[in-house]
Design a protein around this nucleic acid. Structure first.
Length: 231
DNA sequence: AACCAGGAGACAT
DNA sequence: ATGTCTCATGGT
């Protein structure tokens, strides 16, 4: 049993309310200024993996350390020793395994860039096969590093559609795809998709971080004008 | 002092 | 194909 599909205006309206409440989120935050597009993409790529199960402030520390060591650079990072990288990214969770993965992935950066320019469905399939990259990280990389139109889904996104639309999304990978196409089906024909997807996901994260972490009801006042609880 | 953060993989069923 | 367990730092 499915909930009625939201009118496109409904998701647009929510977007507009989120945007006027929180303002632009400026994702993906990047520290390397006015460098080549390639360096920018690589830093985002690293950040996408570092941030798994990790608060963003911790990722910033790790990125800064990598930067000081000159390792926001695929070739150099590929040659770095796991012990060294591990030490640099220590502020993030699972740092030893992430260190090994980052080195491996850095050595395949050229391949990854090529894969990212395939049509989105094929691109995701290919990048998902890489070790250390699951669905959310894959879509984050495609959207934020390579500006491809793919909607990123995270736990906040699922919680949001569950509470706001009463949608029954299961926890597993199926729920990921369901939630993803729930947004994409409605928003796909709008102009500036990548920009919209970018801001929309960031806004949902901001919403989720700030409101009603645990209360499963509290959906009546969702995004209503003048309500300071957003859900 | 439990709980969770911008998850993913191995493994069992 | 779908659940459960594990990894393991730093904030509140």
């Amino acid at each position: 049993m499915r909930p009625p599909l939201p009118l496109s205006n409904e998701l647009e309206s929510i977007y507009n309310r989120l945007y006027s409440h929180f303002g632009p989120q400026h994702w993906w935050p990047v520290t390397t200024k006015s460098k080549s597009e390639d360096v920018r993409a690589f830093e985002i790529f690293l950040g996408a993996i570092l941030t798994q199960q990790t608060a963003w402030v911790q990722v910033e520390k790790a990125i800064q350390k990598l930067k000081n060591a000159g390792l926001i650079n695929p070739k150099k990072l590929a040659k770095a020793k796991p012990g060294k990288v591990s030490k640099l990214i220590k502020p993030v969770a699972f740092y030893p395994t992430k260190a090994r993965r980052l080195i491996e992935l850095a050595s395949r950066w050229g391949e990854i860039k090529k894969l990212s320019s395939l049509p989105v469905p094929e691109s995701r399939k290919a990048i998902l096969k890489l070790h250390g990259i699951g669905p959310e990280t894959c879509d984050s990389i495609l959207l934020y590093a390579f500006h491809r139109p793919t909607f990123v889904v995270d736990a906040y996104t699922r919680r949001f559609v569950k509470r706001y639309f009463g949608m029954q999304v299961d926890e597993g990978g199926k729920g990921y795809e369901e939630t993803k196409s729930f947004f994409e089906n409605v928003l796909w024909n709008l102009p500036n998709k990548d920009k919209l997807f970018n801001e929309y996901h960031a806004l949902i994260v901001e919403l989720g971080k700030n409101y009603c972490r645990t209360k499963p009801k509290c959906r009546e006042c969702v995004l209503e004008k003048g309500c300071n609880k957003l859900f």
